[in-house]
């Protein structure tokens, strides 16, 4: 794999993570349990979609085939997506959504500072902009996970169930493959083992305060970031997200 191909793949991963999670979070718009959370979730979704425009915009530039961020977002099918399996998981209840967000944010917030030091200036600039948003995302999602985990009997039970359900999707974030290795060698992406250690420290502290028990299993689902095997949920999500471009090709705002 040439470096440009790896770089394109890596940028798709970054952009598809924020795109898919951004869309998932936006599904709450108008449905969140209280008005304040509804607006907060919409803000998070918009942050993530904004980051998507930058990552996929750069991906299109690197690919050099004339595809825009919109083309990449709206005109690819499931097998071309390179997001983590975690972010395509359905929202479930509010607790499950916030647990997914917290796990993602904790990873995201460890990754981005490394990317601000990337050898590629364009990547460093996007990471620096996203970092501020993501700092707030984790602030909010971790506080909610702690509040609900260490809350009522029912909220604790739901948060533990969410953690048990989503934990098998955590490993994929830290399992390196040829793309990760190439990007690490190129001075762009961090070493995933070191990233994992920092993530564990952070997430352990959050879970301890939330009185939640980390599942005693290192089993990790895989196939999202390589595109080898997405879960069935992604296809369903794309039919919603992409229907307008599919039904009215080329329609613009």
């Amino acid at each position: 794999m040439t470096d440009q191909t790896s770089l394109f793949e890596y940028l798709l991963r970054l952009g598809d993570n924020t795109l898919v999670l951004g869309h998932r979070v936006s599904e709450w718009c108008g449905h969140a349990p209280v008005l304040e959370e509804d607006i907060a979730l919409a803000n998070t979704a918009l942050d993530l979609i904004g980051q998507t425009q930058m990552w996929l915009g750069l991906a299109g530039e690197v690919e050099g085939a004339g595809r825009s961020a919109d083309d990449l977002a709206m005109l690819r099918d499931v097998w071309d997506f390179r997001n983590l399996l975690l972010v395509e998981q359905p929202n479930g209840d509010f607790g499950q959504t916030l647990m997914r967000q917290c796990l993602f944010d904790a990873w995201h917030l460890e990754l981005l500072p490394d990317l601000t030091r990337a050898s590629d200036d364009r990547i460093a600039a996007i990471a620096a902009k996203a970092l501020k948003e993501v700092t707030y995302h984790l602030d909010r999602s971790s506080e909610t996970v702690i509040g609900l985990g260490d809350g009522t009997e029912e909220s604790h039970r739901r948060m533990q169930a969410a953690l048990d359900l989503l934990w098998p999707y955590v490993g994929e974030m830290f399992t390196p493959d040829t793309v990760d290795d190439a990007m690490h060698a190129a001075g762009i992406a961090p070493d995933l083992t070191a990233l994992r250690a920092r993530f564990d420290t952070r997430i352990d502290a959050i879970l301890a305060e939330a009185t939640l028990t980390k599942p005693d299993s290192s089993f990790a689902q895989s196939g999202g970031k390589t595109g080898f095997r997405h879960s069935e949920h992604l296809g369903h999500m794309l039919t919603q997200m992409q229907w307008l471009q599919r039904a009215y090709p080329g329609a613009t705002w």
Binding site: E36, I39, A40, N43, Y136, D139, R140, E143
Partner: peptide
């Protein structure tokens, strides 16, 4: 603390 966060999200968009 959550009131500050909510205020940030509701009133400083």
């Amino acid at each position: 603390e959550m009131a500050i966060k909510n205020a940030r999200d509701v009133y400083t968009r």
